[in-house]
Design a protein around this nucleic acid. Structure first.
Lengths: 204, 204, 204, 204
DNA sequence: GATGAATGAGTCTTCATTCAT
DNA sequence: GATGAATGAAGACTCATTCAT
């Protein structure tokens, strides 16, 4: 099924309408979950007629797809810009920076993030997510390969998989299910330890 | 919404019906996802009338709930029995045993496992999962506390959270998204390394 | 649709079963109304299998029909026996006796009486009720005709219709909707007045 | 359960749809009774899609509730306007006017009136009916109190209950079950007599 | 472009009734 | 006779989507 927006809004007003609709979609998604998401409800919540909604989105899934696209794009941008920014730092600092970053990334609209994550496979957007993951892993893999001499690893690819998965999950679960852990500074310290010891990076 | 079974089957015939219905539910869930799951489809696939289905399950969610319950129960039993069985082994062996076990646990009906995992929040069974997680964490936390002298950790509780999350996720993702990794013996080795180095357990 | 009982219970035990079923029907009718009456619920409430229920009653309506038959029979018997009993009394006393009687008749299981009354048309038993009414009217008409000389009426038939309807309704509504009126002795007095003055019977 | 209309029709077209739906509801109600009333049948009879029906009515009962509301409103308006109009007439004339009126009120769509009356309790609209009754009684009670000196009554309240109930029932039953009585002019005369003699109003 | 009325395929669910054991 | 498992027609209701105005 086609889930790309029907047409790019030309006028300013139209762009605003699209924004409003997506915002309403996000709100309903957070409040009622994917099953509670109906196009009519979105239109109503956006203060737009159902007809207008279909002017910009060919079907319901397109709404969610747009939201996911958006979400991923923002996370991607944030993460990758930060990643390249820290390349110059010593390894231990890089590790901490990435972990900090991931936590922050997960903390932006965590509720929406959660719904999106959980519903993603169903909207056929899992490809996007996996792709994102793959990019991240390749990047980390590259970084590991670069420092292979200094690190206690054999297969950068395998290690990247393990590290990205582990750290991403830890951040994800901490944000969603144990937010109280986030306020404890030892949480990040300990996560850094997991990575540093595995890689054989000297602790500070 | 109530999702507990309506009544327990008394006769053999009825027990078989319930089994058939649950099997059909699993099949459809795997094939068409939660959204493709309709009570009528389940009944048809089970070769049972829709009325029979509703004799035992008060609504659609109860079907999935029953499946989840079952799944969790089996995983729990397998994991915990194994956990206590390995208590006597040296730490490094314990780590490997648990990881092996988790992979095996995730490999039983992985497709169903995946759907179930993803749909859990929508059926309100997330409590069960979290509870299971909590139990696992407490168990690991206890083990860590017992060996605190020998291990490079400070807070057994925090470390347990990190380890359980990391290892569980790694196994989960490997089974579901990178099954090719499982055939590589270095995959388990490397995961063990992550844990051993973090805990400061001597590598063999 | 046939609503007569399927077969007369021969054995004592069977008779008891029928009683139990009807009692359960009445209970459910009172508690949940006609729409809440399901054969399965009746069977369960009666502690009988649904199969047994259908052994004695061919369908759901037969249950209600039996109850109505029963109810009418009991009311009829009570009323007519009393009516003939009071024939010898002076007219004013007869009037009071009948009114007293009607109130008492309506007060026996008023909840059931109400449901039965309201649901009667739907079970096609209104014929029975109208017939009962007709008999009552004919009886009163006869009584009026007998005393035509002493009474201020012209058409005994018409007067009977008016009186029976008025008195019956007053009792019905008092019992069901204004039970507080029943404890006031002036209520009966006043109803007697309505009748007596209409008929031109000297007040005591 | 909520039985208020879902949304008011704004466009002319929509208003017509609502009208059509209610008309179809009335037709089916009269023809097949409440149990024969299905939303699908109503939609079909109205020549409207089932979806349209649900745009305006949240559920089946709302259909009947709307009909009842309508019916009551019309009866109320007619009755009360007439009641105040006749205040100036002599008492005997007032009595006759009210009785005439009630008969006419009951004669408007008597079949629908009957079904509505019988089904009312089940749609939770009995409150409305009782309220209407109460208003009527209070009005009559007031009238009686005003003329207490001239009338042979003690408790205007009690007398109002008796009279309103009696007259209302007589009209109701005459219209529904003995329409042949209505053509007989003596029917109204006789009903007036019941009231006049009870109140001690001189017959003309 | 916008509106919102209308559509109807598709689901869930109930419950009277049958029938094998 | 009794049991209760099984049946399936029937009905309420939703919601993505279209289309006349």
């Amino acid at each position: 099924m086609k889930t790309t927006p029907r047409k790019a809004p030309r006028q300013e007003r139209a762009k605003a309408t699209v924004e409003t609709i997506l915002a309403a979609t996000a709100r309903i998604l957070v409040k009622h979950g994917y099953d509670g998401l109906t196009t009519n409800a979105v239109a109503a919540a956006a203060g737009v007629s159902i007809g207008s909604l279909y002017q910009y989105f060919p079907n319901k899934e397109a709404l969610v797809a747009a939201l996911i696209e958006d979400h991923i794009e923002r996370m991607t941008a944030a993460i990758f810009s930060e990643l390249s920014r820290v390349q110059a730092l010593p390894l231990a600092a890089q590790v901490r920076a990435v972990i900090d970053l991931l936590i922050r990334a997960h903390s932006v609209e965590p509720k929406l993030h959660r719904v999106l994550t959980e519903q993603v496979p169903r909207v056929g957007r899992i490809g996007k997510i996996l792709e994102l993951d793959a990019i991240g892993q390749r990047m980390i893999s590259g970084m590991l390969a670069m420092h292979k001499g200094t690190l206690a690893i054999r297969d950068p690819d395998l290690s990247a998989f393990i590290l990205v998965t582990a750290v991403e999950s830890i951040c994800h679960r901490a944000v969603l299910f144990s937010p109280e852990r986030l306020v404890d500074p030892r949480f990040v310290d300990e996560t850094c330890l997991l990575v540093n010891r595995y890689l054989g990076i000297a602790e500070q």
